[in-house]
Write a protein that binds this DNA or RNA. Sequence first.
DNA 1: TTTAGCACTTATTTCCCGAGAGTGCTAAGG
DNA 2: CCTTAGCACTCTCGGGAAATAAGTGCTAAA
Lengths: 347, 347
Amino acid sequence: MSATLLDTRRKKILQAIVERYIETASAVSSEAVAKLFRWRVSSATIRNVMAELSEAGFIWQAHTSGGRIPTDKAYRYYIDALLDLEQLTAAERQLIESQYLGRNEVFDELLREVLRILSHFVGYTAIAFSSGLRKILFKKLEFVSVESTKLLVVLVSADGAVKTTVVQLPYQIEQEQLFKIARFLSDEFSGLTLGEVKERLAAQLLASSDSWFHLLRKTADILELIWPNFDKDELYLEGANFIFAQPEFQNSQNLQAVLRTFSEEQPLLEIMKESLEQDGVSVHIGKENPYQDIHECSLVICNFKNKNSNIGALGVIGPRRMSYSKAISTVRYVARIFSESIAGLNL
Amino acid sequence: MSATLLDTRRKKILQAIVERYIETASAVSSEAVAKLFRWRVSSATIRNVMAELSEAGFIWQAHTSGGRIPTDKAYRYYIDALLDLEQLTAAERQLIESQYLGRNEVFDELLREVLRILSHFVGYTAIAFSSGLRKILFKKLEFVSVESTKLLVVLVSADGAVKTTVVQLPYQIEQEQLFKIARFLSDEFSGLTLGEVKERLAAQLLASSDSWFHLLRKTADILELIWPNFDKDELYLEGANFIFAQPEFQNSQNLQAVLRTFSEEQPLLEIMKESLEQDGVSVHIGKENPYQDIHECSLVICNFKNKNSNIGALGVIGPRRMSYSKAISTVRYVARIFSESIAGLNL
DNA sequence: TTTAGCACTTATTTCCCGAGAGTGCTAAGG
DNA sequence: CCTTAGCACTCTCGGGAAATAAGTGCTAAA
């Protein structure tokens, strides 16, 4: 028997096992499957097939007299080959949108709101990250002087997102100079990514004539100062409590491992970052994740974009035994409406 | 025997029980106490006293052959009457300060940093809240136009704290007008609290002549728009994982209850808000808290201030069986240095 | 190829027992 | 009157033993 190509009957049985396990969280017996098929075949026949599926690594049993439990491989096969991706129904979309007022102008809060809704709708913990501004299209920078050497820097991107930060300058700069710098930047670099802005500025700095040098120098200094504040990837997390409801996390070992990952942030960021490379939903099942602590978890992640470029990702994290069908369709839908509403931020 | 006045021996025994229970997390036997007193009295004598303490509601036992466990009343008595408040040693203060660079200019991040240190130092979850800006001394407001009807509003307080928000205006306002409004506000209201600014503006609006009316109207409109964004109480929480280490939260019922409270936010905010009214550390023991879900927890909270007025509170939340001595002295110290460093934000 | 039947394996539950911990009470001693 | 030794009593905890239940693998027949 080929490992990846299963005949129809085997597919159906595997699917039944996976879905049943997702539903009940306990091992599935041959009898249970036979019942699902309305006894059109006997449990003995199912057992024969199950033995083959075990052989092929799709299912395993915790002990000889235990029922079968899907492996990561089974989930993977289930998602890639068996799952006919249902869309959300109109009613479900309606329900989500009715909760999503989206009349918030601040990116952070909007994202948090979306996650809260997503989390409640699917019943898993929702996570997201928004990437640093390296790839953001620059429109303009403005300065508001707070105190003599303390400066509020306002960055406006081409699509109208606003981000601010406060920096302490090493020396005082006159208001006049700041105006010049701001004007210079928006005249010269509008439309480029922030990364490009930095590069070009460095290039110009080398090639500049004396009269320009001073201004360029200061501009570069300031950019260097504010750069780390703008280029941070940020993690968002809502509905951590949903993880408690899952039976696999009643065991406090497992629970602690997951919660540790939540607070460490870095692992989740790494995983979600991958989603920036491609459009659409990606699923990370159990041990496919490189982090020991979430080997009992699956993630369903989808990028979101602002106009053209991917600027972050959102999704859910739950038990391996996740309701993938609902999770995938919901995450995809939510990512889409979120993309639309941040595109709407720039009116 | 009076309920609140215990003679010296009873005090000493109660203290021994409390401290021992805090240390070991398991019921304290008469023998254990006798040993602590180096057998200067027999365990039988201790038992007699214990029976009285039980009677008076200071201790209880989970079952007949179990040792004694302090009640909330015992902790309360311990804190109010028995605990001689040790200060942190110079070395401990040194340790805290060495980690606390405090070279961050943003209030939020500074607070988070402090909580992280506090949390690690005492080994409990650290929480804080910063009150809305109602009570903040106003210095100036500045506007940065983002798009035609989208405005970034920058609020600078008298002590140099900066807060920004983005609002969508119902109609377009010219740059010139915005300048005027900004100037008007800082000329007229600088040094008042934001609450007062609002009141005065309303008063002036009623009494104003026609030529002023237009400007005032618009100012009031904008203020009304940005008000909710500035007047939010915010919860901060660091080191949630420390709660897992405590044996009382190995039971996943208890753990879930606490974590639920963490994510609900409102209960913790309510409790901490009380601390705004008074200076210094307050302790909330177990069932003293009005929220069922944290009946297994104690909180140690201290206000912090910006110049004169209390603008928030910080502290720790841990098991009832908390090391109060260390918690109280550390929370007090950390609140103080935090107050100092935000006072330093306005240089 | 399918299926009924059955022996076999293993987890789960229940019950019991003994060891251990700690108390409350009593009676004796200062 | 206070302290203490001594002891019976209560309750928990851990470890078997036994009964029960779940589910499988195999065999042999249809």
